[in-house]
Amino acid sequence: MMNPSLLAEFRDQGYVIGKDILDPETALKPVIDEYAEAVGRLARTGVHGGPPVELDADAAPVDRLLHLMRETHGACFQALDITLPMEDDILPDTPLHLGPAVFRLLRNEALLDAVEAFIGPEILSNPVQHMRIKPPERAISEKNRAHTLTLTGRTFWHQDLAVVTEDADDTDLISAWIPLNEATAENGCLLVVPGSHRRGLVRHCDTPAYQGIPDDVVGEHRVPLPVSPGDVIFLHPLIMHASLPNLSDGGRWSFDLRYSPADMPTGRRWYPDFLARSRSRPGDELTDPGEWAASWRAARRTLAGRERPRFHRWDPADPLCA
């Protein structure tokens, strides 16, 4: 369980680092192994009709993943993410990763124990979730630079509440940021503005000239959050955060997962949530990874070929974003 002093720190600062929440061997290694298999499969079969990619069997899984990203100019990323895209059209065969190890991470008891301390015992796994692989900035392909920067490169300043629909404005959303390898200032760890959650939801820009919260709104007080595998960064939905550029020679690999109370809107109603924990009705918890995967495939069928759901909180013509 979370130490009460950490909960007080979270309320005051808008974030907290839970040290050694997860066991790297039992919680993270199965996910890494599952991704190693997925990367090998994509390399053998090719991506979007492209040629097979030769991988170094002796390289670490994160390095094989980075090599596949580089050789496919980032086109493999959607097949390895754990949600459907928001920016691109959804097709009947839009790929995503729905492996049982990821499902078990979403339902990890130690993680849910910590989440329960923030939002209570009736916990939805919120579908606003991603796998992230941040390659070295020097290795980002010009061919796919916009895609790579948006999804896997330097993260713009934002608040998580800004990427959900307005019906979830009062939802007790909690983000859990989980590193699969060391996240350092050199390879692009998270960056936060302590206490910024008390400022409420601020204007975000989404224009060709600027995305996210403008720097002059963010201010100068910015704190990097280096963490190790097993640690979890918990973020308030209104904390301003970004990430540093990856100036190292290796990759930074992480998951960002979100949870919300079972009786509150998720802010992404067209994607499937599931009951990860319930003290009042444990029999309703989803425990079958196959059923979880099927729910995402059903959502894909429903959304395929239709105009993707959109929401716009702010006027893109706002002079602040020029």
Rank of each mutant, 00 (worst) to 15 (best):
I140S: 01
A139F: 10
S125I: 02
R138F: 10
R154Y: 03
F156P: 00
F156C: 03
H158R: 13
R107A: 14
T155W: 05
G99R: 13
H130W: 09
W157F: 14
E122F: 10
I119C: 07
L149K: 07
A110S: 10
E109F: 02
L124R: 15
V102T: 13
I133G: 00
R138L: 13
L106H: 05
E122G: 09
R138T: 14
T148W: 03
T152D: 14
L151K: 05
R145F: 15
L105C: 07
D113Q: 11
P100V: 05
S141L: 01
E116M: 12
T150L: 07
A117W: 02
R138H: 15
F103T: 12
S141M: 00
R154D: 06
L111K: 01
N108R: 02
Q129K: 08
G153A: 06
A101P: 00
V102W: 00
F156D: 01
G99D: 04
V128I: 11
L112E: 01
S141D: 04
D160W: 01
R154W: 03
E116H: 11
V102I: 14
G120R: 14
F156A: 06
P127H: 02
S125D: 10
L151Y: 14
T152S: 11
P135V: 04
I140D: 00
L124F: 15
W157G: 08
H130D: 11
G99K: 09
T152E: 13
H147Y: 13
T150Y: 07
A139M: 12
T148P: 00
R104K: 12
V115F: 08
A117K: 02
L105Q: 04
A114K: 03
V115G: 00
L149H: 10
L149G: 04
N108T: 06
F156Q: 04
G99T: 13
L124K: 15
Q159E: 07
G99I: 09
D160Q: 06
N126A: 09
A101M: 04
D113F: 01
P127E: 01
E137M: 12
F156Y: 06
V115C: 05
R104Q: 09
R104S: 07
G153E: 04
A139C: 10
P100G: 10
E109H: 02
S141V: 04
A110M: 02
V102L: 06
N126H: 12
V115N: 00
P136R: 13
S141A: 14
I123M: 06
F103P: 00
Q159K: 03
L149T: 14
P127Y: 00
A139Y: 09
A146C: 03
G153N: 01
T152C: 12
W157V: 06
A117V: 05
A110Y: 03
L98T: 09
P136I: 10
K134G: 00
N126E: 11
R107S: 14
F103Y: 01
P135A: 04
I140Q: 06
L98Q: 11
D113N: 11
E109A: 08
H147Q: 11
T155F: 10
K134P: 01
E122T: 08
L111I: 12
M131I: 11
H147E: 08
P136N: 12
I119S: 09
E109M: 03
P121Q: 07
L124C: 11
I119G: 07
